[in-house]
Amino acid sequence: MTQQRQRVKALRHEHLRRLQGWPGRPRGRRRRWGLRSRLGRAFALTALLAVILTTGMTVGTTMQVLAQFRPETSVTLTAADWDALVNQAGHTIMSGAIRAAIISTLLSTVVAALITRQLTRPLLRLADGAGRLQAGERGVTLPVPPRDDELRALTLAFNDLTASLARQEAWRRGLVADIAHDLRTPLSVMRSEIEAMQDGLQPADGAALTRLHGEVLLLARLVTDLRLLSLAEGGALGLSVQDVDGGAMLHTLADTYARRAGEVGVNVIVQAAPDVTVRADPDRLRQTLQNLLDNALRYAAPGHVELTAHRTGEGAALTVRDHGPGFAPDSLSRAFERFYRADASRTRDPQGRASSGLGLAIARALTEAQGGTLEARNHPEGGAEFTVTLPVG
């Protein structure tokens, strides 16, 4: 649960980092062309232009007044005449200053209006997009501002959010449809069996009860797997993390599955390096490896399955590799989706064991809940390979 919270905090930190400073951009350029810097430069430039315009017009008016009221050398003015000239000059300079202030105010208003229009247009689009999103519309995409600033980052984050919500809603619809389908199949079988017994078309013998019991087990496993997957993905799964010998666990797993593997023509081979100790919950790790081995036995061609344990630069890796046909190109990316099966018709293995279609999804969720990773790939020499990477004990 603590590891789940740490992952959530890391995702939040990454999201805030994207909003505050565009990934891949030099920090100096962000300071230079950021929205805050643009606003500061624009208003500083507007104030500077206003001061220059006001000062220039005032000084120009003063010079005109001085030139106009400069007395001739032969003219003798009385004190009253000088007072009148000074008053008239003062009124003229004041009028020029007022005109300069009015023009500067109009200029500042126009510049501020243009700047605020550029700034508020993306914000209004975001408000409109948020309203459409709240009204239930999905797939809302807003035009991205051309400048690399906070508004662009915010718009990109909004578009990513709406795209993610659209994908999640489509995933939920698909999940509900898949659950309904997987529940409907065993229920339909049970209904037909019971109705046939009620109509006397089929005896209620041990074989019929065995078939019904098998369908009940399938339903129970489906519900159990769904609950386990929900707990693991929600970080509410109780774990008892300790040092686990990875090689010993693989040998125990191979011995447990030896008989079943032999029934389908598969030989399980273990190749474990010495002293490969991982930090994990032994029960959950065993369940993860069992799901991977179940998948290999169900879909792999007859041959052998290799279980390996070795150290890596990041920790320790436990791998399960089969020698079957491997993943199709479109199947590899969907390997860990809930209810996804590469071959939809193969819902059971040759021995009739039921499959809920959640094994790989549960394996990944359990691995991530223990602080590890689970990856799938097509091995270069053929076959599918799953790698569980966990911290070293």
Rank of each mutant, 00 (worst) to 15 (best):
P203I: 04
L201M: 08
G324L: 13
T105V: 10
G129A: 12
W82M: 13
M190K: 01
G382P: 05
Q64N: 04
V320I: 10
V320L: 03
P274E: 00
A296R: 04
I115N: 00
L16A: 13
G247V: 14
G382L: 09
P325Y: 01
R29T: 03
T185R: 15
L228T: 02
R353L: 15
A50T: 15
R99A: 13
G40D: 03
L307S: 07
S104D: 03
S74H: 12
H181D: 06
A361T: 06
L85I: 15
A170R: 12
R29W: 10
R284M: 08
F336E: 00
A44H: 08
N295I: 11
A196G: 14
A328R: 12
L114M: 12
R338P: 05
A135G: 13
F339R: 08
A344C: 06
L85T: 04
A248M: 09
G383E: 05
R260N: 06
R298H: 14
A248R: 13
Y257H: 06
A376Q: 04
R338A: 15
E215T: 11
A220Y: 07
T308R: 12
G352Q: 01
A196S: 15
E195W: 03
L106P: 11
Q64S: 02
H251Q: 11
G303Q: 07
D322I: 02
F69E: 07
Q271C: 09
V51K: 05
T389R: 05
G234R: 07
F43N: 01
R311H: 04
E169H: 14
A50D: 06
D225P: 08
G96D: 08
E150Q: 03
V86D: 02
A153P: 08
T78V: 10
R31L: 14
M1L: 14
G174P: 14
G34Q: 11
I103V: 15
R334H: 12
A204T: 03
L219I: 10
D182S: 09
E233D: 04
A258D: 12
V86R: 13
P146S: 01
L358E: 05
L183R: 00
E375Y: 01
A273H: 11
A361W: 02
R17L: 15
S188Q: 10
P282V: 08
R321Y: 03
S331T: 11
G359L: 08
L126K: 05
I179R: 07
L374D: 01
A258T: 14
D255W: 00
E14V: 06
L45F: 14
A79N: 05
L222W: 09
L293Q: 10
S37Y: 07
R311P: 00
R191W: 04
G246H: 11
R132D: 14
R377G: 08
A254K: 07
D182M: 08
L11I: 07
S188R: 10
E375V: 15
E72T: 09
A101Y: 08
G246Y: 12
D149S: 01
W82G: 10
L11T: 02
L253H: 07
G234M: 01
V65L: 13
L390Y: 11
L237Q: 07
T62E: 01
L297V: 13
L119S: 02
D349T: 08
T256S: 11
Q118S: 00
